[in-house]
């Protein structure tokens, strides 16, 4: 038989809340059960297929990156890519040019990526951790209730906005300030990009480590207070050491976010592939180069285009490692205190 219109959840809600449901409704549900089994199976199969999309996406990412990267390594040796100190793919545009192979040494890019991420972490870690500690340990509920969402605004602002701020406000400011002290600062310095990226990942660190700090059992705090420790001694000597694994996990997640960030560095860090540790100089990053290589004219199998996928694979592997480690640490930490 054709099944009868399904009853709405509201009616069962009434039933669940302990009130008497008219008999007619229950009859309806009973008649509904007469419905072909294959239909249920089909629905579940469709749902399972939706869940498998997640696997498909990962597979798609890995396969596309690996496929193009292998083609790239046909043209450029793996070792030259991973350990080369010179990055100048521009020379590979025309085959008849001198040095047509171009140089695809990724080290300067990795160097730039890590330099900017390190600056970002140097800005965000102390600020994020200290605010997290203050918010979860000292702030009254009312203060917390409006400061936390305000800080979370920082997390909701699109990165292109940070990039605009870095390139048009922070970078000129740093350049000008440096100039007053007689410092020569590139207009696209790693420092400007790094500082702004630090602000971007700050709410990530403060909210994740805030959760971790809150998860430290009250009994440990009580033990410390019971011995006569002050609040800050309790935090520094008991709460933070106990939360350390979780905090380390949240820092790793933030670092992975910084490494994979594109827009801020694209707008504020420049294209110069320099091997330097000086934050006042312009550097370039993996993500910036991927964009630079793939926007504009493309031929799909030139070494220049393919190298972008090799960089993408490098980036994917790097962030995946950081994430897996971070999630592992955080999970272990949670189990420890559950």
């Amino acid at each position: 038989m054709k099944h009868i219109a399904p009853i709405r959840f509201g009616r069962v809600g009434v039933f669940v809340n302990g009130k008497i449901t008219p008999m007619a409704d229950q009859m309806l549900i009973l008649t509904q059960t007469i419905r072909p089994k294959w239909l249920d199976r089909l629905v579940i199969a469709l749902l399972a297929a939706a869940a498998c999309v997640a696997i498909l996406v990962t597979a798609g990412i890995v396969l596309s990156l690996v496929f193009e990267t292998l083609q790239f390594f046909n043209k450029v040796p793996v070792m030259d890519f991973l350990f080369g100190l010179d990055w100048s793919p521009q020379t590979a545009i025309r085959a008849d040019q001198v040095g047509a192979g171009g140089s695809f040494g990724a080290i300067p890019l990795i160097n730039g990526t890590f330099l900017i991420s390190a600056i970002a972490m140097a800005v965000a870690t102390p600020l994020g951790l200290t605010s997290a500690v203050y918010l979860s340990e000292y702030a009254t509920k009312r203060t917390r209730d409006w400061i936390k969402p305000t800080l979370e605004i920082l997390a909701g602002i699109p990165t292109v906005v940070y990039g605009f701020f870095a390139a048009l406000t922070v970078a000129p400011f740093i350049r000008m300030t440096g100039g007053q002290f007689g410092l020569e600062i590139a207009s696209e310095s790693a420092l400007a990009a790094g500082i702004v990226m630090g602000i971007m990942i700050l709410p990530l660190i403060s909210s994740l480590s805030g959760d971790v700090i809150n998860a430290v059992p009250q009994s440990l705090r009580d033990a410390s207070y019971g011995l006569g420790a002050t609040h800050s001694e309790t935090i520094r000597r008991v709460v933070l050491p106990a939360a350390l694994p979780g905090i380390a996990g949240s820092l790793l997640l933030a670092a992975s976010r910084a490494i994979g960030e594109t827009m801020i560095v694209l707008m504020a860090a420049g294209m110069a592939a320099k091997l330097t540790a000086n934050p006042l100089e312009a550097v370039t990053t993996i993500t910036v180069q991927i964009v630079a290589l793939l926007t504009g004219d493309q031929e799909f199998d030139s070494a220049k285009t393919l190298s972008a996928f090799a960089l993408g694979l490098l980036l994917f592997a790097l962030t995946l490692c950081l994430n897996v480690i971070a999630l592992g640490i955080v999970r272990k930490y949670r189990e420890h205190y559950d």
Partner: peptide, 28 residues
């Protein structure tokens, strides 16, 4: 609290070594 100590319902050693646990009060 330095002169009125307290022992709690559930044993709550700090996540530190045995030595550091006992030395904690002495240190602070």
């Amino acid at each position: 609290r330095a002169q009125v100590g307290m022992v709690f319902q559930k044993p709550n050693p700090f996540p530190k070594s045995i030595y550091e646990n006992v030395a904690y009060g002495l240190k602070i």
